[in-house]
Amino acid sequence: MVSQNSIDDLARRIGDGCLLALPKPEAGASMAVLRALVRRGARDLRLWCLPASGLQVDLLVGAGCVASVECSGVSLGEFGAAPRFRRAAESGTVRIVDTTCQAMYAAVQAGEKGSPFVALRGIVGSDILAHRDDWRVMQNPFASGEDPVVVLPAVRPDMALIHARLRDSRGNLWVGNAREAIVLAHAARQTVATFEAHYDGNLLDDERMTAGTIAPIYVEAAAHAPRGAWPLALPGAYPADRKHLAGYAAAAASEDGFAAWLDRHVLGVGAAA
């Protein structure tokens, strides 16, 4: 039986100032650990969200845990703009590193492969590129004529935080079709995970499960967190708590409303894990 950690253990492993990778909410959000990060008073996190985000970013930014956010877009979707993210961007309290979806996918896939950089179409002439000191434009060495392409350094986050559906007794994690969770676990220097339920058997024994399985060689620590993505949906497991999300969007519109929401749902006695 592999060891199991607590949700708070995972939050302690995510050190202040680290480059923390989070998959898009549809690929499994470990909201339980994000709440624990707020409770432990995490600081200066550099979020790297593949490729887009919402409540995950808004919560951490609002709670003062974040120094920078690299993400192609942050929004609460049908519940509107992400209010704390927006406020922080407008007041300049958090550095926003603008990018585009495919740049994030390509850079982290290069990190997964151990390649130094990756070349991409598009982006040339965008103000995103104009503000990225870490990106370059080079001539395609294989083209006969002029063909400028953008090159990006590979990204290997310090830490990836994912939420899996299942974990077996060997420590294999099953994330279903959440490819973002898989590539982040492979590319990051360390990965910590929460999971919904225990799996009886070896996930790698079943051909139908292996494609969605992350082997324990990539995972430093895991904690059992039933409904750990709440209030977000975990596709295939449970829907979003739309009433709660609507309440969040309304409360977080103001600093005081956000603080009261935090007290009630994250910090206070009886708040969710």
Partner: peptide, 17 residues
């Protein structure tokens, strides 16, 4: 930019697509 007055969500896939 980067001193935005009103922040929108972000470019998403547009800069590529």
């Amino acid at each position: 930019y980067p001193d935005v007055k009103v922040r929108f969500p972000g470019s998403y896939g547009s800069a590529f697509l």
